[in-house]
C-alpha cells in the first residue's frame, strides 16, 4: 500500500517536472543578474528547455503547457503576447515530428540539432518582432543570443539529464 502510494507520487512528480523546469528556466532567463556585460542578451533558456524535454519526455511536456509558459514569458518580458508561445510551439512541433532522428543519438547530434533549430527559432522571433513593431531591429543581439544559447545548451542539458535519470528512468 505504502509502496503503491510512493510510486503514484513519483509518477505525479515525473508528469509535472518538465513543465515546472521549463517555467523555472523561463523565469531564470528574465532575472536581472546585474553582472557587467551579461544582462543585455541572455541565452534563450525557454527554447533550450522546450527542445530538450520535447526530445526526451514529450509525453510529460504537453503542447498546452508549452503554450501557457510562452504566454507567461511574453507577459513578464514585455514581448508581444503570443510570440513566445508561437516560437515554443514551433520548436515543440518540429522536435516531436522529427524525434526519431534525435532520440538515442549522441550528445553531439542533439546539440547540432539545437544549433540549427534554436537559431531558426531565434531568427524567426527577430523577424516576427521586426514585423510587429514595423522597425528594422538590429540583428546582432539576436545572433549573439543564438551563440549564447548554443554554448549554454550542453550545460542545461546535463542538468536536465541528471534530473531525468534520477526521477524518470525507473518510472
Amino acid at each position: 500500500m505504502r509502496s503503491e502510494w510512493a510510486s503514484h507520487t513519483r509518477a505525479a512528480v515525473c508528469r509535472v517536472t518538465p513543465v515546472i523546469l521549463i517555467f523555472l528556466m523561463v523565469l531564470l532567463g528574465l532575472m536581472p543578474i546585474g553582472i557587467p556585460y551579461v544582462d543585455p542578451v541572455t541565452p534563450a533558456l525557454g527554447i533550450i528547455s522546450v527542445y530538450y524535454w520535447s526530445i526526451h519526455r514529450p509525453e510529460y511536456c504537453p503542447a498546452a503547457g508549452v503554450f501557457i509558459i510562452g504566454l507567461f514569458q511574453d507577459a513578464l518580458s514585455g514581448t508581444p503576447m503570443g510570440m513566445s508561445s508561437l516560437i515554443f510551439l514551433g520548436v515543440y512541433g518540429v522536435v516531436v515530428s522529427q524525434r526519431r532522428v534525435l532520440i538515442g543519438k549522441s550528445v553531439l547530434v542533439e546539440w547540432l540539432g539545437f544549433l540549427i533549430l534554436g537559431s531558426v527559432a531565434i531568427t524567426s522571433q527577430w523577424a516576427l518582432s521586426a514585423m510587429f513593431f514595423e522597425f528594422f531591429i538590429d540583428p546582432r543581439p539576436a545572433l549573439t543570443q543564438c551563440l549564447f544559447s548554443a554554448a549554454f545548451y550542453p550545460c542545461v542539458a546535463w542538468i536536465f539529464g541528471r534530473v531525468r535519470r534520477s526521477l524518470m528512468e525507473t518510472v
Binding site: 523565469l27 532567463g29 528574465l30 532575472m31 536581472p32 544582462d39 543585455p40 542578451v41 541572455t42 513578464l76 518580458s77 514585455g78 514581448t79 522571433q125 527577430w126 518582432s129 531591429i137 543581439p141 539576436a142 549573439t144 543570443q145
Partner: peptide
C-alpha cells in the same frame, strides 16, 4: 525581472 530578450 528584465526582458531577457534582445527585441524589447
Amino acid at each position: 525581472a528584465d526582458s531577457g530578450s534582445p527585441f524589447v
